[in-house]
Design a protein around this nucleic acid. Structure first.
Lengths: 158, 158
DNA sequence: GAGCTAATTGACAATAAGTTTCATTTACTA
DNA sequence: TAGTAAATGAAACTTATTGTCAATTAGCTC
C-alpha cells in the first residue's frame, strides 16, 4: 500500500492526512515484525522526533478500525500490532524474533461444521495463531534472556 | 476435580492449602463462563468476604502455572480466565454471555504441514478460538449495551 | 490564495489493571 | 505443640492506556 492509497483510505473514512500520522503508518505498514506502541514510538522518533507517543496510540486505533493492522495476542502485557491484509487471514508468529507471516485458506470449514453440530454454537469468527521459530531463528537458536539481548537478537533477524 | 484432588495437586507443587485459595479455586473451576479477576473477586466475596483481591490474582497465577485455567484473549483490557482440562484443547467462546466450551481434536495437522513447507517455520504450538453465539444466546439475541445490561443478560444465560 | 472550522496534536493529568512490599497470620512439619 | 516458611490483606507502587485542553493545522469554501 503506497502513500496515495493510504491517504485516500484515510480521507474516505473521515480522517485527515497529517505528517505524524503518515510517519507512523509507514513505519507500521513497512514492517513484518510484531510491534508494540512503544517500539513504534521509538522507531518513528528517529526520523520524526516531533511525533508524540499518544499520537501513536491514536493512529493505531484508526489503523485497527480500518482493518489495516491486527492486534496479536502475546503473553506480554502490552498490545502487539502487525500490518495485515484486510481480507480474512491468520498468523504464524516467531516466538524468537517476533516476525509474523500472514496466511490465508485456513480451511477450518469441516472443523467448524463439526463444532456447530456438537455444541449448537452459531460460529461467526475465529482466530488462529501458530507459534514457532521462523527459518532464520530456527538455524541460529536464540539464547537471549534480557530485554536488551532480545532486542539485539531480533534486529539481527530482520 | 474435587476438593481432595485439588489439595493434592497444590501440595504436590509446593503450595499450601488455604481457605481463601480453595474458595477461589472452587469458584473458578465450578464455572463454565469467562471470568476476570474482578468478577471472581465479586463472586468469592459473597460467600467468603475475607478474601482479598490480590489473593485472587495470586491464585490465578498458580492455577495458570498448574495448567488448570487458560487465559482467553478477548478485546477487553482485563485478562479473562476459564477453567480447562490440562491436555491440549481449544475454545469456543460465546460473545454474548461469555460461555466457553473446550474442544479437543482440532485436527490441524494437515494445515500445519502445509504451513511448515510454505514458510519454513518450525511450528510448536497454536491457539485457536472460535467466536459466535451459544445455543441459548442465539435464540434470545442479546440487545444489551451498557455494562449493567450485559451483566444482567449474562446472568440470565447461566 | 485567504479565511473558516472542526479534527488533530502534544503535554500533562487521570485511570485502572496488575504487581510489589511488608507486617501479621497461618498451614504444614518435625 | 512449637518452629518456620509460605500466604495473606492493606496500601503503595508501576506502567500501559485514555482523557483533557489549549494551540495548531488540514482541507473545504469563497
Amino acid at each position: 500500500m503506497n502513500f496515495q492509497e493510504i491517504s485516500r483510505q484515510l480521507r474516505k473514512n473521515g480522517h485527515k492526512v497529517t505528517p505524524q500520522r503518515m510517519a507512523i503508518i509507514q513505519t507500521v505498514l513497512g514492517s513484518t515484525e510484531l510491534l508494540t506502541p512503544s517500539s513504534i514510538f521509538e522507531k518513528v522518533k528517529k526520523t520524526d522526533p516531533g511525533v508524540g507517543e499518544v499520537t501513536v496510540y491514536r493512529t493505531l486505533n484508526i489503523l485497527e478500525s480500518l482493518g489495516m493492522v491486527c492486534v496479536v495476542h502475546t503473553d506480554e502485557k502490552t498490545h502487539s500490532y502487525i500490518s495485515c491484509p484486510t481480507e480474512h487471514h491468520d498468523h504464524l508468529i516467531c516466538s524468537d524474533c517476533g516476525k509474523v507471516v500472514n496466511f490465508t485458506h485456513c480451511d477450518l470449514g469441516t472443523l467448524e461444521k463439526r463444532l456447530t453440530a456438537e455444541s449448537g454454537f452459531n460460529i461467526n469468527d475465529h482466530r488462529l495463531d501458530f507459534y514457532g521459530r521462523c527459518e532464520k531463528c530456527d538455524r541460529k537458536q536464540c539464547k537471549a534472556k534480557t530485554p536488551a539481548e532480545i532486542r539485539t537478537h531480533r534486529e539481527s533477524c530482520h
